[in-house]
Structure formats: C-alpha cells, structure tokens
Design a protein around this nucleic acid. Sequence first.
DNA 1: GTTCCGCATGAATCGATAG
DNA 2: ACTATCGATTCATGCGGAA
Lengths: 297, 297
Amino acid sequence: MKRKKIKKTEPNIYLGDSKELLTELIDNSVDLIFTSPPYADSRKNTYGGIHPDKYVEWFLPFSSQLLRVLKPTGTFVLNIKEKVVDGERHTYVLDLIRAMREQGWLWTEEFIWHKKNSYPGKWPNRFRDSWERLIQFNKSKHFNMYQEAVMVPVGDWAKNRLKKLSETDKRRDNAKNGSGFGKNVSNWLERDFVYPTNVVHLATECNNKGHSAAFPDELPEWFIKLFTKEGDVVLDPFMGSGTTVVVANKMGRIGIGIEIVNEYYQIASKQLNHSSFVFEPKGKYEKAKTPRRKKIH
Amino acid sequence: MKRKKIKKTEPNIYLGDSKELLTELIDNSVDLIFTSPPYADSRKNTYGGIHPDKYVEWFLPFSSQLLRVLKPTGTFVLNIKEKVVDGERHTYVLDLIRAMREQGWLWTEEFIWHKKNSYPGKWPNRFRDSWERLIQFNKSKHFNMYQEAVMVPVGDWAKNRLKKLSETDKRRDNAKNGSGFGKNVSNWLERDFVYPTNVVHLATECNNKGHSAAFPDELPEWFIKLFTKEGDVVLDPFMGSGTTVVVANKMGRIGIGIEIVNEYYQIASKQLNHSSFVFEPKGKYEKAKTPRRKKIH
DNA sequence: GTTCCGCATGAATCGATAG
DNA sequence: ACTATCGATTCATGCGGAA
C-alpha cells in the first residue's frame, strides 16, 4: 500500500548523461538550475575526472542546453571552485565565465559560500580552502528574486535586543502564545530583519554518505528560497546523491535531477522515495504526519 | 629635538606616479607588495576613474614593474573587486588575472576578505556586496610564508574555554606567573591554536581618515605577518592614506609607499611622522614611552 | 568612570529624469 | 538612442553626549 503512494509521487530523476537527456526538456521551462558539477580532475574513480585544461570545452555543451531550458526569468547558480594545479590556481573557472558569457549568459553575481568548518589540513604554502564560488548566471536582466524569503535577523539581534527583555517578560509572553517566542520577538520578526549579503555562511556538514562532494541542505535551500516560489521547477543536471532535488521537493518545488553514475542515482532514488511521503497531499494519512510536514517550512 | 628624531626615522614614501617611480627601485628588492589600487570607475573626483574596459591595459605597466622589483621569494597581494556594469559583474578582474599570468606572474591563491559591514542598499536583483578579492601572485613556487605567525585560537576558545575557568582559577594562576594569563591559558597558547583559512573576516574602516577607501589595519597586518619577517621590505604602490606603510613600520618592517594624489600623500606623511616615535630604537627616550610601544604588539 | 542611545557615514546600485 | 546626474534605498560601526 505504501508502495502505491510512493509511485504516485515518484520524483523526476533520470539516470543518464545530461548532455543527451536535457535535450528532451522543453524550452524555457525551468525556474532555477542549482548544481555542482564534477570538479576538474577530481572524483577520478567515479566520474573519470575532467582534465582542467579541457574543462571549459567539456562544460559548454551542458550549459548550452541549460541556457535553452531555463526560463527568461530563471536563474542558474553554479557551485564550483578551481583546483590547485602545480602550485597555482588553475584558471578554468575564470575561463568558463568568459566562455559562458560568449554563449549568451549574463554573469550577474558571484556569491561566496563561506564554509564554517572546512576540512582540516596544512600545506607548506597554502591554508585550508574554506570558500567556494556560487556563480549566478541569468538569461536576462529581469529575473525573479524573492529577497524577503531569506531575510535574517539584524546583526545585534542576539547581543542587544534579547538582552533587554527581562526574564519575566520572556516567560510570560511565551506562555501566551506557546510559540517558543514571546510577542516581543514577534515584533522583531516584523521589524528587525534585514536583507542578507552575497556571502552565505554555512557549515559543510552533509549527511549524504556515499557521495563524495555533497553540500549541506541549507545551501540549495537558500537559493531555492531566493529564486523560486512554490510550484516552480528546480533542476540539477549533476544530481549526485540528490541533495538539491530532495530539498526542492521538501520545499514544495518540482525537483528534476539527472545523474550519470548509477550508484549515486540509486542513493538519490532511495532518499527521494523516503522523503516523498512527507509531502503526500490531502491528508490521506494519519495525523501523525503533520509535524513532519511542518518541519519543512 | 623631537624634530631631529623624526627626520632620522623618516619613512620611505613618495609623491608621484608609481609607473615612473617604481623604475627607480632595484630588481628583486621587495618581500611583500600589498596594495589596493583604485577600482574601476570609482573615486572619480580624485583619481579620475579608470573605465572598466580599459582597466587591464591601465594596470599592466604597474604590475610589470612590480614583477621586476619583487624578490623571487616575495609575494604580491592585490585587493580588488569588480564593479557592476549594466546589471552584470564586469570581467576586468578575471581578465587581469589572465593578463598578469601572461606577464609572468603565478596566480597562487585567492583569499576572500569577508567584510562584516558592507555598504548598505537595496536593489531588486542584488544583495549587498560584502566580500572582496585578495589575490595572491608570486614570481616562483618557492615563496616565503610564515604560517605560524597568523595562527588563531580554536573556534570555541573565547566562548567555552575561557568561560569554564572560575574567577578564582584565573586570579590564582595569574598571581603565580604574573603574566596576565593563567597557566591554563598558557597551555592553550601552546596547544589550541590552529592555522587560519583563506577567508579573512574583518570590518571595514569606518572612521574618516580623509581617504575614502581605507581598509582596516588588520588587513595588511595579517598579510605582513604571513609573508614577511622583521626587517623585510613591504611596498604599497597605491598608498592612499598610508595604512599599509604605517602598519608595516609598526611591525618592524620597512614600509615603502607611493601615492599620486598630494592630499592623500600628506595624510600618510602626517600619520607616519606621528607613529615613527613609537619605534624609536635604543630607549633614548624616557620610560614613559614604553606603554606606547606595547600597544603595537 | 561606566553604559547607553542617537547620529552620521561609507570602494554601492538602480531607475528615473534630463541634456 | 545614448550618456550624465540625482534621489532613494540600507545597515554595521564608532563617535559624542547624556543618564
């Protein structure tokens, strides 16, 4: 019986080469592309590894298709970081930006993912690399951006505002609405939130075992909030273990994923079938599911 | 009498065009170049502003000289950020990296300066820009790097370790060694410091120093610690109000600065003459100066 | 002497208006 | 059409004055 339900909500993920499978997607149909393609010369045993000097040439056929399927109001966020080759940062990411602009993309912005806990390590002439590029491309200057969805508390929120409340204030107001936040806090929610910056400060923790380069849920979540609304289509042409698609579905978006390595595809499939229960519509299940749904928002 | 002493320690700053003045510096004489050139099309009323499309062409004559004067073991740290032009990030910084590599530079690393307080503003399609590039170039793969000089306390040092000490613990141990730190703290100094990452998280300078684009002292300080030792030569060919040179001198390095705008040169000159007292060697002055020296370290 | 509040001030960017 | 100028927007910081 559960099986039946799973099938009904079966996610849109595909096993195969994005270069070919993307051609089957119709023009101007995707609201957000969020992906982290295989890095140059890495993950050799799985993807084979693309030589840094050939990286741009390798990537352009994909980005050509992505340009076609993206809506004019849509956004492409590319998570990538150049590798150190022979003691130098290789320039393939810079070259890729140039080549994609020639292909017709607009290089709108470059966000920084500042990794809170990067992998420890020490080299004689180099520190730990604790940031990655999140390069934003668009088809046109007028793209959708829902800035209010990612607002954050003001900088001194914890330091000053919270301190001013007496303990009794906090307890009394908590008791009133049972939300865990006092009414004063509710006021802050209305007033004292500000827009974030182009630096996203998140931990690297990822619960996806089996895939070597998974990012934390919060990373796609932030960009999905920012660039899509419910019901929109989110595409990850290098799905890996499926983080982007899972998160998109959890957020009420339509996640589409493509992965060429069967092992990763299976992991993604398993994750998605598990998580799809949470979004089963129309309350056909027992009430016990409600808190799980809540967890999403 | 004081005047005499000032003259003795008069700093190496020059008023004029770096393109010309740099030719007078001898080959392979500089250990660190740390500079923040005028950004494209900015500071119109002072520098005249360089058009983004002409920026690379404008900069290469400078970097050519810098390549000559830098020691083979030296490092060039370039603080720069591309401007938004017509809704898109302009590519002149990426182009500059490419051009400088063709000139013979190695693009070793890119540090991120994550600005705590970025310029405010709100736009329909863009967040506040709160990071800048600190691009590291070298002449050879074997450059000097003193990593131990910039080690930082482990992340939870202030929050947890220090808090765990009872007040009596602190007082008792302070009394024992009179160092101002308890013995437990001494242990932490030995053990619980780690190497930093390639993200530097600092606030921008807020107080008006008369120069519109001053970075905080901590920024050059960090790189001077990392790439030079005492007595080394630090060059800033776009000195501005002199932050880099002042900090270098304070740290016992030999700071050299060049500035083309007289107004900024005068500010730098004033700052340097004031701060040079602090480093007067050999204790020729009354003891009262000691606390000022202390302030530096 | 402290702590706290109010205020001015930026390496900016967009969109409208004016020449 | 294309460039130049201007107003509106926004928030972390450090200063000075007040309690």
